[in-house]
């Protein structure tokens, strides 16, 4: 290890201990186990700063935090998966004695023997670990893919297809399908969000957006002439959508940064209330 690395490590360790002691003292009136709480808070702050240090450049502190996160989340997911899926959902329907063992109420039902099927399927899925019997895992996999596809099929076709088509049936003249003539339109012209003009414009955007978007994804014809122009409009609409999506993402990420900085300033350093 180089001398500079040792110095950085020593500085971080010292800062950590100082923060731990100060935090411990500060939390004396709030918690009984104030030094433990102080350690936890300091450790959280250390992890946050370690991850943020990646912005400067890749370093061992970042790697440590990342690996810790990956490991902890994998273990957490596994433990929670066992207690909620197997113990929470399966055991109470499987056997009374097992339910008593895990101290959860047994759910009596007429067709409970059906729940042995998922047990068998689960075991077959685990066969994937064996080279010789690995083929067995394909059967439950086929079941999973088939049922998920079937379950999703209706939902997607209804909510994302037929209902979406029906949602494009919007009046292009007049706000609510009543067109009272050009004279009425100009005499009641207003720029408010609920006004006829704005409503009409947004309906036009929806109609043209869907129309040109569909044209862009039409692969059977060369995109030339009028068709090509509609397709150009389509890609413009797509790009505007992506831009909006990008903007929203920036907002989301800044919110997360606000969350972390608030933690550092409020919970750790205590400079804001």
């Amino acid at each position: 290890m180089r001398k500079s690395s040792l110095m950085v490590l020593a500085t971080v360790a010292t800062l950590f201990i100082v923060s731990w002691i100060f935090k411990g003292i500060a939390l004396e009136d709030i918690y009984e186990s104030n030094y433990l709480q102080g350690f936890l808070l300091t450790f959280s702050a250390f992890l946050t700063l370690s991850i943020m240090s990646f912005l400067y450049k890749d370093n061992p502190f970042y790697k440590f935090s990342e690996h810790l996160f990956v490991g902890v989340s994998a273990a957490y997911a596994m433990v929670v998966g066992f207690w909620t899926t197997i113990v929470g959902n399966l055991v109470p329907r499987l056997s009374e004695s097992l339910s008593n063992f895990f101290q959860i109420p047994y759910q009596e039902g007429t067709y409970n023997f059906f729940y042995y099927l998922p047990v068998i399927f689960g075991l077959m899925l685990l066969m994937r670990l064996s080279k010789k019997h690995g083929w067995m895992s394909r059967i439950p996999l086929a079941f999973i893919i088939g049922t998920t596809a079937g379950l999703n099929f209706i939902g997607y076709l209804r909510s994302d297809f037929t209902n979406q088509i029906a949602a494009t049936f919007i009046p292009l003249l007049g706000a609510a399908g009543e067109w009272k003539g050009i004279g009425d339109f100009f005499s009641n012209l207003s720029l408010s969000a609920g006004g006829q003009l704005v409503m009409m414009l947004s309906n036009w955007v929806i109609f043209l957006g869907v129309f040109c978007g569909l044209i862009y994804f039409f692969f059977s014809r060369e995109h030339t002439g009028l068709f090509g122009k509609a397709s150009r409009v389509g890609i413009w609409i797509l790009m505007i959508t992506f831009g909006a999506s990008f903007g929203y993402t920036v907002m989301g990420r800044i919110s997360l940064l606000v969350g972390r900085i608030t933690f550092l300033f409020k919970d750790w350093l205590g400079i804001i209330s």
């Binding site: 909510s159 209902n163 979406q164 949602a167 959508t241 999506s245 929203y248 993402t249 989301g252």
Partner: peptide
């Protein structure tokens, strides 16, 4: 919704 997926929710508004 979280901001990242907000644009994907708009097609459902206001009917769904």
């Amino acid at each position: 919704v979280a901001a990242v997926i907000a644009p994907q929710m708009y097609p459902y508004y206001p009917a769904q």
